[in-house]
């Protein structure tokens, strides 16, 4: 992680900027529109391709750093990322435009599908189809959870936390905000001690 010395409050931090010319509002909108419409079940890989490889608005290091922030904080990660990129180049207006670009197209599609559902949702064929899609989505989530589980470091210490969350949230139906606030504190404390004991290698 490169440590940049504290920079003065400039509206458009140029330090570490990768692009020669900062994108205009229109370019931000169009760039994020292409991202929003390209992915099914998650658009993060497309966001990286657009930002780093195609338009070169961020260097790979900048991308990782910003994504680190967006994944560190709760909330919709890709939306957070578009806010950060928009803000970096065009301030508040840039953020708004980037989010509108990202969500605009998919929002219209989803609303059109919602209208179709209001009209035809009672048909048994439609209901059957949607149940099938939900089951497939459930399978995709199982695969995602499995893959995320494999990526967890020090599994013997930390995977019990995954089990605990599952029991509290899925089986006992505790409210998630309560569970998360408690367990983030607990898990972070354990992680802190673990890192101390293992020379911060994890």
């Amino acid at each position: 992680m490169p440590r940049v010395p504290a920079e003065p409050e400039t509206p458009q931090p140029a330090a570490g900027a990768f692009s020669c010319t900062p994108p205009s509002l229109k370019e931000l909108f169009l760039g994020f529109s292409s991202v929003g419409l390209s992915g099914f079940g998650g658009v993060l890989p497309f966001a990286r391709r657009m930002l780093v490889e195609e338009r070169k608005w961020l260097s790979p290091e900048d991308f990782n750093s910003l994504l680190g922030l967006c994944q560190f904080l709760p909330g919709p990660n890709v939306i957070n990322l578009s806010v950060a990129v928009g803000a970096r180049y065009r301030g508040v207006a840039g953020s708004v435009v980037a989010v509108l670009g990202l969500l605009g197209g998919p929002l219209l599609i989803v609303l059109a599908l919602g209208a179709l559902y209001s009209r035809f949702g009672d048909l048994p064929q439609v209901q059957g189809m949607l149940r099938g899609v939900a089951a497939a989505g459930c399978g995709l989530l199982v695969a995602t959870a499995w893959r995320m589980g494999l990526a967890v470091s020090a599994k013997r210490v930390f995977l019990p936390f995954a089990l605990l969350v599952f029991v509290l949230v899925a089986l006992l139906r505790w409210p998630m905000p309560v569970v998360m606030v408690g367990l983030v504190l607990l898990a972070a404390t354990v992680a802190h001690l673990y890192r101390k004991h293992h020379g911060a290698a994890g």
Binding site: M1, L141, A145, A162, F166, V169, A170, M180, V184
Partner: peptide, 30 residues
Amino acid sequence: WHRFAGHPVQLAVQMGVAPLAVGLVAAGAF
């Protein structure tokens, strides 16, 4: 962010949150 990134507290939270997210996604599937 660049001042906080890499700080021990940030790394500890990041490490601790990962397994919680696994449990939540599994709960979503369930």
